[in-house]
Amino acid sequence: MPELAVRTEFDYSSEIYKDAYSRINAIVIEGEQEAYSNYLQMAELLPEDKEELTRLAKMENRHKKGFQACGNNLQVNPDMPYAQEFFAGLHGNFQHAFSEGKVVTCLLIQALIIEAFAIAAYNIYIPVADDFARKITEGVVKDEYTHLNYGEEWLKANFATAKEELEQANKENLPLVWKMLNQVQGDAKVLGMEKEALVEDFMISYGEALSNIGFSTREIMRMSSYGLAGV
């Protein structure tokens, strides 16, 4: 009978692992960089929360440095142009929403979708990471829950006025997440991370956030799986 506790051993120094890691590591670094600048931009839209958002932004910057160290540790050069292209869709949507002052959409993209995506990826990565990266990632994932919480709290307090925009922003952005997951599944698999586990973990974190904000189970099931079937 297979036992879950038996860890698959990875050759972290193999070319095939390092090649895949160069893209995954870059995505993580770019994700933290995007998060850093997104929180700083949100601080402009929400001046009353400027201090808190700046604090979150700084945390993301620390995470970025942590993940850069993970790449260095495995002697991998992160493929940053690949990662910037990877985030282009979400980045574009965030910038568009920001230019229109749509704080709800900005929060959904950064504080819910990107944070839930990061939490899912880090949770799935931790059991298969090298020792150095595992310690870094364990520290990061704890922080990310607090960031998800910031978005939840704000949107919960403004649920009545934000609901419609959240549903619309969900429709516009969630399909991008599924595309991103598809794009990365081959590399993720080399690192021991399975797509279906990533999708499930994302839907759990995202669904919990939607639930805390005030959506019903029925709405959550509809929203958190939006566009998944077509992928």
Binding site: K195, E196, A197, V199, E200, M203, I204, G207, T217, R218, I220, M221, R222, S224, S225, Y226, L228, A229
Partner: peptide, 20 residues
């Protein structure tokens, strides 16, 4: 009345999260 979950194959259910 969950059309997103109806007509989906096993792969989808393998990714579906638990719900109350």
């Amino acid at each position: 009345g969950y059309p997103e979950y109806a007509n989906q194959g096993l792969d989808f259910w393998c990714s579906a999260p638990p719900q109350v």
